[in-house]
């Protein structure tokens, strides 16, 4: 791996620590409520049964929230692409547009490294940092299961759900990289477009569950291909995984194509 990759990793190494610590607190705290939920199962069920159907469909799995897989899905995993998406967008924008605004790209792009390689090493760096953070998240989940054994979930299922987040988050990173490659210096626009895609995906996917006219648009969102429930039940379709890998490759390829052809801003 080249110098740009290690530079990217070096800059992001603290992110792994801080994100992991934050996720540890959030995960353990969230799981700590599960035993009391089990104790109050009937009260919760009555509450959930009183929800309108649309709300139950919007928050997929809430109808049986005492099920361990449904609980971690509703309380943790359904938001995780959004939370990790913030990291992904920042990485994507800082990697190119951020370097241009800081005027470090002039030095980087005059090293004997082709532009495609600069972008590739940065993209891989983002992926490796994300894997580091996901490892922190997985450790948080393992610790939570150890501390609260009532949450009866296998470590392999948790690993599949946690590491499975890599793919939707890298798609969001890919959108941010693409914006960064297409819009020199327009960090705000890039951020706005990538954030709109991320939040829009979440809304469209969940609204699609309750509105048939929106349903066809679900295929454009990352949530259609990553669902922690499927991962936790270990019945995640391979085709969904392949589609996400292809989407990441396409976004990376388009980013390289545009970055190779445009002026470096300053």
């Amino acid at each position: 791996m080249g110098a740009v990759f290690w530079k990217q990793f070096y800059s992001g190494r603290r992110s792994i620590l801080w994100w992991s610590l934050g996720l540890l607190v959030y995960t353990v705290l969230t799981v700590s409520f599960y035993p009391s939920l089990l104790e109050e199962r009937e009260t919760y069920q009555e509450l959930v049964d009183s929800y309108p159907d649309a709300m139950l469909e919007f928050f997929e799995g809430i109808e049986d929230i005492t099920d361990p897989a449904n609980y971690v899905n509703v309380q943790l995993f359904s938001y995780m692409p959004l939370i990790f998406g913030i990291f992904a967008i920042l990485q994507g924008l800082n990697s190119i547009t951020g370097e241009e605004r800081n005027q470090t790209m002039d030095t980087l792009a005059t090293l004997p490294i082709p532009r495609w390689q600069i972008l590739t090493e940065k993209f891989l760096g983002t992926g490796v940092i994300l894997l580091g953070i996901l490892t922190g998240f997985y450790i948080s989940l393992v610790l939570s299961v150890v501390l609260f054994p009532e949450l009866d979930l296998g470590l392999d299922a948790l690993a599949l759900a946690a590491y499975g987040l890599f793919f939707p988050v890298m798609i969001i990173a890919g959108v941010a990289y693409l914006c960064s490659a297409a819009l020199p210096l327009h960090r705000r626009w890039g951020g706005a477009i990538a954030s709109t895609y991320m939040v829009g995906s979440y809304l469209i996917y969940n609204l699609g569950n309750i509105n048939d006219s929106i349903k066809p648009l679900q295929a454009l969102t990352v949530f259609d291909y990553y669902n922690a429930i499927d991962a936790l039940h270990k019945n995640w379709a391979l085709s969904d995984l392949l589609i996400m890998i292809l989407a990441i490759a396409a976004l990376y390829g388009a980013s390289v194509f545009l970055f190779e052809r445009r002026d470096i801003g300053r």
Binding site: K7, Y10, S11, E99, N102, Q103, D106, T107, R266
Partner: peptide
């Protein structure tokens, strides 16, 4: 190459 305005990695 030395640019007119030198951007550096602050970390």
């Amino acid at each position: 190459y030395m640019p007119s305005e030198m951007g550096l990695y602050n970390n």
